[in-house]
Design a binder for these strands. Structure first.
Length: 467
RNA sequence: GUCCCCUUCGUCUAGCCCGGUCCAGGACACCAGGUUUUCAUCCUGGCGACAGGGGUUCGAAUCCCCUAGGGGACGCCA
């Protein structure tokens, strides 16, 4: 451990926003890169919400994305408490420090911070009223991402509300100061606030920490930054939709940061090794769900089979995705579980997301699968599907083994005999067996369904064709 | 309105700090072709950008200025 101390300070609102997750991630990466300390601090000053549940959303989201913290909730640490709601005494104490150097005053029951400089009144076009302004010395921020930024605060600001509670700017600075935070990595939306924070740090007689303002994540389409109402903006959503957390994390890393070569899908250890503050971009990034899906599909394909099976089981059985599709999983025994695994290992390379899986595999588990009309039309319009299917059924019936190479040889022999292409056998058969023209490898499909299912489904389909 | 930040393909980005190797590279998406039994994967190719204008320079995506556009802040929200 060296002396780098960074923090993520979410407010438990009940949501874990993807922008917040990315801020947390950059802090976490920087801590891990430098061997420093990652602090999780909860800004729970708003007591009305069910903080228990709201906190859980954040902690679980953090864990889901693979971010562990060195100090904070459930962990403790030497700089606690890590909940703002438990730090009132510290805030009092630091208010006294400002009083001692005569930098605060009361007005309308609230406590204000007093800027130093010449005062004048001016009409404020934004607030639509006369306000008292101050010609304060500009604060110079040496931002690690943006370089030198200069901004002067021009109005005194509130530190404690009339109800006695401290405001964000104050607690944020006091917490960073008392927790020994060395680097503040946060969204660019805080850049303009930084002059306030610098004023406070200096009033306390300390040097401000190093700042690094990271770019914002903009909506996938339309103007403005991503907000919790936008689709795809909540970490919970990706958890619920069973995205691969590594894929989401990898995608988030790429929003504003890159390894400077052409790599994109990367191991987290490698990202940690390469991550650094100056390597972060300064321009905002638009959220691209398509690219996230692409990465998710790539992670899914390359996932160890056992893990894929577990993910699939949790969703299809655990969360009743198959039950909803009419499959009686309650009645499953050991044999069905083995069958499930066989199906999954056949389908892993084909499916793009766990979310797509139920519809992709439902016909393996029920005889009551639906037929895709469009696929049906397309497949049945050429050649003589009924004849091909009849030949197919006859040939399959005689086969003792449903090994893939034997199946393949059988179809090849049929095609050679009739002069029709293999496709004329394959496509209608797939349709008959699965109701669709999309699916896993054909011979794998036959092998996994097995002789009994295949023959009965073919019979059923053939009699439908005759009707 | 004021202040701050930003500006390379539709999107994410490399290149910019240390001007020439960039008629700008990669990825997603899209389109076409190939492989494959379908779909997907995979492979090949295509489409597609230095916001605009001024400088500086022999030479600018790279340095400077202006304009435009985008984003953010301006709460007794965090």
């Amino acid at each position: 451990m060296n002396d780098v101390r960074v923090r993520f300070a979410p407010s438990p609102t009940g949501f874990f926003h993807i922008g917040g997750a990315r801020t947390a991630l950059f802090n976490w990466l920087y801590a891990r890169h430098t061997g420093g300390t990652f602090v999780l601090r909860i800004e729970d000053t708003d007591r009305e919400r069910n903080t228990e549940e709201a906190l859980r959303v954040i902690l679980e989201g953090m864990r889901w994305l693979g971010m562990d913290w060195d100090e904070g909730p459930e962990k403790g640490g030497a700089y606690g408490p890590y909940f703002q709601s438990q730090r009132a005494e510290i805030y009092r104490e630091y208010l006294d420090k400002l009083k001692a150097v005569d930098r605060v005053y009361e007005k309308d029951g609230a406590v204000y911070f007093r800027l130093e400089g010449e005062r004048y009144t001016a009409y404020d076009e934004y607030k639509k009223c006369e306000v008292e302004k101050v010609r304060a010395t500009p604060q110079v921020i040496d931002d690690r991402i943006r370089g030198r930024v200069e901004r002067a605060e021009e109005q005194d600001f509130v530190l404690f509300r009339r109800n006695g509670e401290p405001v964000f700017h104050f607690v944020n600075v006091v917490d960073d100061l008392t927790m020994g935070i060395t680097h503040v990595i946060r969204g660019e939306d805080h850049l303009s606030n930084t002059s306030k924070h610098c004023e406070l740090f200096k009033a306390f007689g300390v040097e401000p920490p190093v700042f690094a303002h990271i770019p914002l994540i903009l909506k996938g389409s339309g103007p403005g930054k991503m907000s919790k109402r936008d689709s795809g903006s909540l970490v919970e959503e990706y958890q619920r939709r069973r995205f691969v957390p590594e894929a989401v994390r990898n995608y988030l890393c790429l929003l504003g940061w890159s390894p400077k070569d052409d790599r994109e899908k990367m191991e987290i250890d490698e990202i940690i090794r390469l991550f650094d503050l100056p390597a972060i971009n300064s321009n905002n990034a638009r959220f691209d769900e398509k690219k996230l899906s692409f990465l998710n599909a790539a992670y899914l394909r390359e996932m160890p089979t056992e893990r894929f099976m577990k993910e699939a089981w949790d969703y299809l059985v655990g969360e009743r995705a198959l039950t909803e599709r009419g499959v009686d999983v309650e009645a499953w025994g050991e044999e069905e579980q083995r069958y499930f695994e066989t199906v999954m290992s056949l389908c892993q390379e084909k499916v793009r997301s766990i979310e797509d899986l139920p519809d992709f595999v439902a016909y393996f588990f029920t005889e009551d699968y639906s037929f895709d009309e469009k696929a049906g039309k397309k497949v049945l319009k050429k050649g003589d599907p009924k004849a091909r299917l009849t030949e197919m059924r006859g040939a399959l019936e005689k086969l003792d083994s449903f090994a893939e190479d034997e199946l393949e040889a059988t179809v090849a022999a049929l095609a050679a005999e009739s002069g029709a292409g293999t496709g004329e056998y394959i496509h209608p058969t797939r349709l008959a067996l699965s109701g669709t023209n999309v699916g896993p490898s054909f011979y794998g499909l036959l092998r996994v369904l097995g002789r009994e299912r295949v023959l009965s489904r073919l019979d059923r389909f053939l009699s439908r064709l005759s009707a």
